[in-house]
């Protein structure tokens, strides 16, 4: 238990100092920046996951966010700081449509519907050449403008360390928001729905309304991450941002890390992705991602509440404040 309490703090210190440790090594910074992005995706995915629904289609929101922000900033010249939230909004809009069809479904059938749903925005983006330039994708997206605090300039897109710290900051803000959400009565309702929907309804929880809310919030933050991704990579295409990668990764991290906890999904991303990139990728350039398949199989068979969930047994998200999850 001591370990479980100390780990998040140590992890944070590690992440804050990483650029210094890594001597600003480009590859290391790139890997950890992407790991942090995946961690925010896993956190956002779990806003829905905590209610018991497993989505295999979050790439729909990721792609929608990326495309919205990219097109608005490219074609209208609006600052990315304004278009990124709009990416989130459009992703939530897509989630609302998805909710219309999918929220009546439960469990396996919800998962299957989300898996199929991704195809819709993807194929539309792919074919709406006039607006999205189709399967060619978008190149030369504007980077993130540097932030000014008085005379201090925080350069984001100009340096890898800047990008890294930006994603880290966003991740911490999202972590704070998710913690507040899960500890609030919203979190209580979502967990109750996950555990016993009928009983949740009987104590007065409006099940469908809360499920929709969690889907919208989850999609919103996934869309924001997608938008940031576009401006960081500065190149997007339908097959990339709507690809299975961005549906599968958050699901895998959340389940392996522990979808009944706040931190588990993010921790899994921050451990597994670097392990994949630094250890398995050099060994097995083609096929290194088998790792993700293997861990999800092991998790579902032997540790359904995830590694972090197992370490923190009996300490799932609770309204009792004061304990770090």
């Amino acid at each position: 238990m001591q370990v479980a309490r100390a780990a998040p703090v140590l992890g944070l210190v590690f992440l804050l100092l990483l650029p210094v440790f890594a001597r600003y090594n480009d590859y290391v910074l790139q890997v950890f920046t992407h790991a942090l992005l995946l961690a925010t995706l896993a956190l956002a995915w779990n806003i829905l996951g905590v209610s018991g629904s497993i989505s295999l289609g979050h790439a729909a929101f990721f792609g929608a966010g990326a495309y919205t922000s990219a097109l608005l900033s490219l074609d209208l010249g609006v600052s990315p700081w304004a278009t990124i939230p709009l990416g989130g909004v459009l992703a939530a809009g897509i989630a609302a449509i998805m909710g219309l069809f999918c929220l009546r479904l439960r469990g396996a059938y919800f998962a299957l519907a989300t898996l199929a749903f991704v195809e819709i925005p993807k194929v539309i983006t792919d074919n709406w050449d006039g607006l999205t330039r189709g399967s060619l994708g978008l190149v030369g997206l504007p980077g993130l403008p540097s932030l000014r605090l008085g005379s201090y300039h925080f350069d984001i897109s100009g340096s890898l360390a800047g990008s890294y710290y930006f994603v880290l900051g966003y991740g911490l803000v999202l972590l704070l928001l998710v913690t507040l959400m899960f500890r609030s009565n919203l979190g209580l309702a979502l967990q109750a729905i996950r555990e016993e929907e009928i009983a949740a309804e009987a104590v007065g929880i409006q099940v469908q309304r809360y499920r929709l809310l969690s889907l919208l919030l989850s999609a919103f933050f996934t869309g924001i991450t997608g938008a940031c991704y576009g401006h960081l990579i500065r190149y997007i295409e339908p097959g990339l941002v709507y690809g299975l990668h961005f549906s599968a990764m958050p699901m895998i991290f959340a389940i392996c890390g522990g979808r009944f906890t706040i931190l588990g999904p993010a921790l899994a991303a921050l451990v597994l992705y670097p392990v994949d990139q630094f250890i398995f990728h050099p060994l097995l350039p083609a096929g290194h991602e088998f790792l993700y398949g293997a861990v999800i199989i092991l998790a579902i068979l032997f540790m359904p509440s995830g590694v972090w969930g197992q370490l923190r047994k009996g300490h799932f998200v609770s309204i009792k404040t004061g304990s770090i999850e």
Binding site: M251, G293, I296, I300, L301
Partner: peptide, 22 residues
Amino acid sequence: LELNSIVMSFGVAILLQNGMLF
């Protein structure tokens, strides 16, 4: 069973994809 089989076989699919890629 239904839901867990989906999640697990999704993992198997990734495993097989990477095996075939290799």
